[in-house]
Every structure is written in structure tokens, then in C-alpha cells.
Write a protein that binds this DNA or RNA. Structure first.
Lengths: 178, 178
DNA sequence: TGAGCCATGTAAACGGTTACATGATTCC
DNA sequence: GGAATCATGTAACCGTTTACATGGCTCA
């Protein structure tokens, strides 16, 4: 939250929009999360709130306070305890794919690859451009992270392609219907 | 669950242990999840339960029923709707690392790499051997998935190493204290 | 004899998502 | 005029984790 404010978002709505085009793949948010959290941060003195109406439409503009700056830096400098967690039904299916026939295994791997390709395309098409724009305003890490995500996905796609070829070599008739 | 039973686990405790050395990185479980779920599956007729005491210590042995086999296959063949979700505080910190000084950025990247190396080591040291053992009993996909995970982590590690070098080149004095 | 593992469960807490509710503005 | 977007919130639900509770077995 604090980090997003720092990068230029001001309203709760804007923060949500910003995460959708930047951290979505490794730190998604929802509005139902953002608004209460902003209220908490305000009460803790880490952000300040000011009314910023657009015509008759209400809007609250938030700004990070000096205390908030300190808290953000403290967090960034602290040891990270939370282990990376990732939960993926697709990989779980692959893990259990021995229960399927050769043809079905190939279908599964293909679907997995296509899904990964879709994610990669979104990263390169939607997220990377936004991150590149942020670089103009002095932040280089969003772009680095976008590249890390996109490149890693490319790696997985290639890995899955190789697996597909391997499976095809074992059961050549499996690929004919596609 | 059903898949784990298929791979040889029988008791709830054994299922939990099995996931700890196989699907832990992409599908963790806890005992508080496993026992109620087994009860639900039993009531749904997808698994059968039989008492299998070890001396005076009670143990329940579960087996997958034919209905359970069908349900497992149906699921494996169905279209996957749940998008891959992964949530990582480490990457989030990297995304916001512009708030830090050059030295601190390097420390952060190093910590990230070390953490990734630890995960990779666990995959190669703990999970891969178990998956290789499963291959002897006819299941090849656990090993494939273990390799996918380990290789992907290796890729990320190399990526982070390059980033470290890049950061060092920009601020040469940053690496001196290590 | 004590630590650690095997074994089974329940209850409370937590983090997050979905659905609900409302209303203004903009653009086609 | 209607759809999409901007904008703010609340309430219910859901899956998961942590803590609690119990007890037998094994090995040093």
C-alpha cells in the first residue's frame, strides 16, 4: 500500500488499478482489502487523508507521512520471513498426470503451456509497458520485476514445449488430431 | 487427496507427510485440512475407510473407490479455470526497492537469491529423490514436476545473479563489506 | 526417561474473495 | 440513453493456518 502511494497512486481506487497493472501476478489486491487497510494505515498515522472531490463525486487522496516512509523503509530492510508461496492447480494436475493416457497427458501439458503463454503475453503487453513508463519517473525496479516475471514464464513455456516433444516421441499418434 | 492415495499413501498422516516431500512447493496441506477432507470424501463415496491399528495406536487406512477414480480422472481431464496464483513478499519488496539506497538494494537482491537457492536445494535434495523413487513404481510425472520446479528456481537464481552484477557495476563500493 | 515421531481430530483465528449497495462521470 | 469506468464502502463467505488436545510407539 505504502509503496503504491509512493509510486504515485492517491485514491484507494487508484491503488487497486495500479496493482492490477503491476503487482497483479505476485501480489494481487481487491478493493475490499484496500479501503479498510487505508483506514487502518491512517489511524496508525502512516498515511494522511484529504478530501479531493471530482465535481460531485467524492474522492479521498492519501499521502504517505514521514512515519509511513520510515515504516516502509524498515520493512524493506527487515529480514524476510514469509516464504514464497505459490499454489497452482495446473502443476498439481501435471504431478498426477500418470493417471491419464498418453494422449490426455499431452492435452494437459498443452493446456498448461497455453495458459502460461497467456500469462506471459499479459506481462509483456500490459504490465511491462506500465513499468517502462514508471522508469521515466525514476523507478527502475518495477521494470526489472516485470522482466523477471516475463522471462521466467518464457523459460517455463520452453520447458513445457520440450516436454510436449518428449511425450510426442513416446506416443507419436497422440498429436495427430490437433 | 485422491491423487495421493493413488500414489500409495493410506492414512491421513501419511498423506500429509507425502505432500510435504512432493507437492509442498505448489500445493501445501495441513493436517487440519486433511482429516476433515477425508471424512467428506468418504461421505461422498470417493474413498473407503478401514481401521488399520498399529498395536494399540489407532490408524485409519483409506482407499480410493471406483467412483473416486472416476472423479479424479474427470478432474484431470476438465478445463482448468483456477489461474495460477502465487504471492511473494520477496518479489514485492524488489518491486519497491527504488526506495532503498544502492547498497541496500544489493542486500535485498542477495537475500532473495539466497532464499531461492535454499528452496532449490530443498527441491533437489529432498523432493527430487522421493520423486525418483516414485518412478520405480511407475509414476514419472512427479519427477518431471520436481525437475520443472528445480530448473525454474535455477533460472531465477541465475537471473538474480546477473542483476547483482549489474547493480555492483553501477555502485562498485556496495559489495565490499560482504 | 525424555525427545521425537506417529496418529487423529477440533476450535479459533486470519487473510482474502465475492457479493451487495450506492452513486457520479464519461464516452459512444 | 446506456455501457463502462470512477469511486467508496460493508457483509458474508471460504479456504487455510495455528493452536489446542490427546495418546501410543520408538530409539537413544
Amino acid at each position: 500500500m505504502l509503496g503504491m502511494l509512493r509510486l504515485g497512486a492517491s485514491s484507494g481506487y487508484a491503488i487497486k488499478k495500479a496493482t492490477d497493472v503491476s503487482t497483479r501476478f505476485f501480489w494481487p489486491t481487491s478493493l475490499a482489502q484496500v479501503y479498510p487497510e487505508l483506514a487502518r494505515l491512517q489511524q496508525a498515522g502512516l498515511v494522511s487523508r484529504s478530501e479531493d472531490p471530482q465535481g460531485a463525486r467524492a474522492r479521498s487522496a492519501y499521502e504517505i507521512t514521514e512515519e509511513g516512509q520510515v515504516a516502509l523503509l524498515d520493512w524493506l530492510r527487515s529480514a524476510l520471513k514469509a516464504p514464497m508461496q505459490f499454489r497452482d492447480e495446473g502443476v498439481l494436475r501435471l504431478f498426477l498426470a500418470d493417471a491419464l493416457s498418453g494422449e490426455e497427458q499431452l492435452v494437459l501439458v498443452r493446456r498448461l503451456r497455453e495458459r502460461t503463454e497467456a500469462a506471459e503475453a499479459q506481462m509483456r503487453g500490459e504490465i511491462l509497458p506500465v513499468a517502462e513508463a514508471l522508469r521515466q519517473s525514476g523507478a527502475k525496479f518495477p521494470e526489472l520485476v516485470a522482466h523477471l516475471g516475463a522471462d521466467t514464464h518464457t523459460y517455463v513455456i520452453d520447458w513445457l514445449k520440450e516436454l510436449e516433444e518428449q511425450l510426442l516421441a513416446e506416443a507419436p499418434r497422440a498429436g495427430s488430431e490437433s
